[in-house]
Write a protein that binds this DNA or RNA. Structure first.
Lengths: 208, 208, 208, 208
DNA sequence: CATGAATGAGGCTTCATTCAT
DNA sequence: TATGAATGAAGCCTCATTCAT
């Protein structure tokens, strides 16, 4: 029997720490954020933090896990209401457009820093790829559905196209990270949507 | 000794240091590279290094400058021999395909790390954007040339399309950083080339 | 519940904790053993442990007390069945030989670590010396008995010889701690027995 | 060219650090001595210390190396002037007797702590054994010389006897660590000398 | 009494930068 | 100018002990 502390309490505390730490990582970056920053931000002690996570790196990994899971889950859920593949693609772009640039930048820097970090820690590459696979599977399914429904070109390899899609999205976010073209943010996203649909659709003339 | 010689010596030494430091940054990363690593790699002393650069950060910035200048210059030079816009695009993709994945990854980490670094140092954002502007101008000119020659769609905004192009290229490199889809490397680059050309060309059927 | 039962329960629990903690100390060492190690090994809580002992150090001291008491008691008991002094000495060496080297090493580290610990904690020195005195008295009595029975040299100071005996035994264990001469373990113990008997006996020729 | 710093300067500084650190280790113990203690004691910075030694452990090892080398060298040198094996043994005991008890205790605790430390760090065991081998070789040679000159018993295994000798010496120091029998210090050492000589000599009657 | 989450001082080590020579 | 030993702030993590439940 714990000191009146349930598993639920612990789960919530763990989640709260993750949230607080994420705020720090997102605004200052992983490397620049110190353990002291995090515990001060959360108002807890270092020992408490290390009771829930074994290292700064561990927190980072769990955080990335969580975010990727949530992203995939969120899209999956929404797709249920969108029967047409093209609408799903459109929905994804609308989500990107809807996100304030400020937010996008924070997430993008978190995302980039994680990938850089992972690129120097071989054991993380596999973890990352597992999640990437989920994201690719999500899109790949979408594209295959579109092919079966006659919306998308049959000659495309769905998996490659899915990989391409995420690359394109991240490349865009990547370039918005440093701020050029701010005024044109949504305009450029629309162009990208246009480019992607021209690539996928059988009759691109129908778009725009 | 005449000041001319001295100045020249200094310029060469400065360039040599930059080259050596770049090798370190590219293979180990900016944060992970220590000043000791650099001076050991170059066979010079710390004092000498600090005589040419005021800080690790300073070296980094000058290096990024140099690299971006070289990239733009290299493409510009090559474009002289390629009259058709579509061939220039094709050439750019061929360059990407020609680069060993290992190399691409190193450069990508350097690039990403610099952008992350810049995103936390406002004074660098402007610097970065100045260079991005050059890169966009290069592509923008290419696209406009293509529009005038009747190769590319007239209704595209050349600058947006240029921005899109670089985003797409970097997004791809970004995702190859962590290794998934290695076997498909050049296949996916070709798909991307296909997508870009479908977006730009008036008669996409002509491609591949 | 009657206080008698409670007291007994407490004594047993205290003893159980001591036993479990000893196992940890012996295999990992005092400094390297954490309170967490001990409570995990015992399956109790930290609070429970601190209800019985005021500190890690307190546990250590009580443990050392117990072990020394047991050692002296064990020899005393066995000596009842061995009338000749020389047989008692021989018995003591046989006990050393019988102990697996692995065990000897663990105990030796515990012993050494405690002595080091005590050497920095003056209040423990007296405690240790009280126990050493018992061990010396045990041997001293044995030697005097041997002198009276005409087995041992009359000109020896029994107490000095007893001190010497323990020194010799511990010196041997000390050197076996780090493993040299493993193959010769029992051979060297026999040599030591030989040396000790040559020192004690009136007619050393009779030995071996 | 260093900043006017010769190799000799560095060697001396390294030695000075070792000396200062040894003082700390000897008086407080290895585990209890912090890097801060050492640098404060020496009046240098932490960085300076880490420029000469890669870790606290590294200092410890180099220190143990040095001490063992010096010990063996010092005895070897002195043995040149002592042709008779028995005189060499006597000299060794006289050195032990001459050492103030206070000194002996400090060295003994250093020695013990090193051995304990080594017993938990397998890579150090070999190092220790290499030095032990030198010490044993020194004694073994002495005993063989004594056997050839007809001073010592022919039937002894020189190496085992050497091992025994050091065990006996260390066992004694070990027991003096905690202070009992202070008044009898040199008396007990003489007894030990007597015991050892009785074991080695062909005609033990000749001694004391 | 038992529980174990929380505390926080304190340990070891790194590394960008300086400055006497 | 070149050198590299020295600096010391700052980082990550540990763990004996406490105390609310």
């Amino acid at each position: 029997m714990s000191p009146r502390v349930t598993q639920r309490y612990k789960d919530e505390k763990r989640a709260a720490i993750l949230t607080g730490a994420l705020e720090c990582f997102v605004s200052r970056g992983f490397q620049a954020t110190t353990i002291d920053d995090i515990v001060k931000h959360l108002g807890i002690s270092k020992g408490a933090l290390y009771g829930y996570f074994s290292s700064k790196e561990d927190m980072y990994i769990q955080m990335a896990n969580k975010r990727m899971d949530e992203m995939v889950a969120s899209f999956s859920a929404r797709f249920k209401d969108l029967p047409r593949a093209v609408d799903r693609i459109t929905y994804m772009f609308s989500r990107i457009k809807a996100q304030p640039l400020q937010e996008l930048r924070k997430w993008m820097s978190f995302h980039m820093e994680f990938m850089l970090f992972a690129s120097r820690h071989p054991e993380l590459v596999e973890l990352h790829n597992r999640y990437m696979d989920k994201a690719i599977a999500l899109l790949s399914k979408l594209i295959q559905d579109g092919q079966q429904s006659g919306e998308f070109r049959e000659d495309l390899d769905a998996e490659s196209a899915a990989f391409l899609f995420w690359s394109v999205r991240d490349g865009l976010a990547f370039h918005f990270l440093l701020g050029g073209q701010e005024q044109r943010y949504s305009e450029i996203i629309s162009d990208m949507e246009d480019m992607v649909l021209r690539y996928l659709l059988i009759n691109p003339e129908t778009c725009t």
